[in-house]
Amino acid sequence: MIDRPLDLDAVRTFVKIAELGSFTQAAETMQTTQSTVSLKLKRLEKRLGCQLIERTPRYVQLSAQGVTFLEHARELLKQHDHALASLTNARQRLTIGISDHVAGPELPMLIARMNAQDPELLIEIRIGSSGDLLKSFDRQELNTVIVRQHESREDGKLIANEKFGWFASQDWQPRANEPLPVATMPEPCGVRVMAGHLLDQAGIPWR
């Protein structure tokens, strides 16, 4: 039986490790050291009397107890944040990062629908490259992001599949002995890299 309250900072640290799958990334996100993150986790595990994270030189994963505790830990932090917010008159803010490849003309309508559900919610939209938005998300500057899939990330949720194609004006004709002019977003741009790779594989010069 647990007779003392849990350290919420340690609980938040555990959740970050679980979500990022890395002690190093959790430390960077929380702007602290890896040793501090490890110490907070050990204290929480000692407090609960069980191992939450199984860590080896090759991987970090939740134990069976960690999987069970994670849902409750998230709910605990959520209720804690709501309790603090209820004592202030400040409007809640939702900051969303949207990749410039995803943002479209329907965005204002979607924001209006969100605002209609909760008029007191302050919605802030930031549009940028997927890589930059993910960095901001890891620094906790954004609540959530909608970006193109990055193979190195496994902490997101697939919401749609994109289709890519080659497009040109109807009267455009390629010029002999000249590189193919390709219009893309400026670097860094994952679509530009993908297009360049495909053209290079096909042996087609481009610029």
Rank of each mutant, 00 (worst) to 15 (best):
D81I: 00
H82E: 15
H82S: 10
H82C: 03
A83Y: 10
L84R: 15
A85I: 02
S86E: 08
L87T: 10
L87H: 14
L87G: 10
T88V: 08
T88A: 09
N89A: 13
A90S: 13
R91F: 02
Q92A: 10
R93D: 02
R93V: 11
L94C: 05
L94W: 03
L94Q: 03
I96H: 01
I98A: 06
I98E: 07
S99W: 05
S99L: 04
A103E: 08
G104H: 15
G104K: 09
G104P: 00
P105T: 08
P105N: 13
L107R: 08
L107E: 06
P108N: 09
L110G: 07
I111R: 07
I111G: 04
R113I: 00
Q117P: 00
Q117T: 00
Q117F: 02
P119T: 00
E120K: 11
E120L: 12
L121T: 01
L122Y: 07
L122Q: 14
L122T: 04
E124Y: 01
E124H: 05
I125P: 06
R126T: 12
I127S: 08
I127E: 03
G128V: 02
G128I: 02
G128E: 14
G128P: 01
G131E: 15
D132W: 11
D132C: 10
L133N: 13
L134K: 13
L134W: 11
L134Q: 15
S136H: 14
F137P: 00
D138I: 00
D138R: 14
R139Y: 08
R139E: 13
R139Q: 14
Q140E: 08
Q140V: 02
E141Y: 04
E141M: 04
E141D: 11
N143C: 04
T144M: 07
V145T: 10
I146N: 03
V147Y: 05
R148P: 00
R148T: 00
Q149N: 06
H150L: 14
H150M: 13
E151K: 12
S152G: 04
E154S: 11
